[in-house]
Design a protein around this nucleic acid. Structure first.
Length: 240
DNA sequence: GCGACAG
DNA sequence: ATCTTGTCGC
């Protein structure tokens, strides 16, 4: 997919924070997209003791959730992990992976926060702004915000609050497991984001999108056979 | 000063 | 994020 890579990219924490404060006003948290027939999952892993950043992107059909395409990209790691500044460490490799996609996903689920961020500009928001596409933030743990007790039943959720505002939601994607922290990335509302995350989570704690991207980004077990990956799967590398 | 802190 | 097998519990 076509991507307009940022011209200037922060090298230090100060300029990175300044950029976040500048971009936050551009985030749109109302639905600004039509039908969704493809959803993508993005995740990042590291190699060489962290010296190399590996980004993985997987595109699935929606709502079937059948694998259609995937791409991997490696880049030297140049920004440290600093809570609140994750996008500056991971986005460069993510853009490289997305740029290789033949399919332009209708919606992207990111591994990390969206608006549930101290300056309301988590990695999902930042990526959505760069791509000018709808994105959702799905994190496995909390960065900021407080919330009430969450019911145990799957599908239950409570708002995540910070400074008197709702910045996201804590969602029970599966019973008897830790919740997911869902928030709007860009061009989508929190309510709609929750619906899509649930629709992408038919069996496990994590959405299929991020689960598959996770396997590619981390060097674990092999991908499950591209289960009856019907026609849609064009002439790509022998994946999964 | 102390504790918290996405991946 | 990453180092790592089996084990406890729904």
């Amino acid at each position: 997919m076509k991507i307009n890579f940022p011209n200037r990219w922060p090298t230090d924490a100060q300029s990175a924070i300044a950029l976040q404060n500048q971009l936050r006003s551009q985030i749109v948290t109302v639905d600004r997209f039509d039908s969704v027939s493809t959803v993508a999952g993005v995740d990042v892993g590291f190699e060489q003791d962290g010296a190399v950043t590996r980004a993985a992107v997987v595109v699935l059909s929606f709502p079937q959730l059948a694998p259609l395409e995937y791409q991997l990209a490696r880049r030297p790691t140049d920004f440290p992990y600093i809570p609140g500044l994750l996008s500056f460490r991971e986005i460069p490799a993510v853009l490289a992976a997305l740029a290789q996609l033949k399919t332009e996903p209708d919606l992207i689920l990111c591994d990390g926060q969206g608006t549930a961020h101290p300056r309301r500009l988590g990695i999902a928001c930042h990526l959505g702004l760069i791509l000018q596409r709808p994105t959702i933030g799905v994190a496995k743990s909390r960065l900021v915000g407080q919330h009430s007790d969450l019911p145990e039943e799957k599908g239950a959720w409570v708002p995540l609050l910070d400074q008197g505002e709702t910045i996201g939601a804590v969602l029970r994607s599966r019973s008897a497991t830790k919740p997911l922290y869902v928030s709007a990335g860009h061009q989508i509302s929190l309510e709609t984001a929750l619906r899509y995350v649930l629709q992408c989570t038919p069996k496990y704690r994590l959405p299929e999108t991020t689960r598959l991207a996770d396997r590619l980004a981390s060097r674990r077990r092999a991908m499950p056979a591209i289960a009856a990956a019907t026609e849609p799967v064009l002439e790509q590398k022998s994946l999964f």
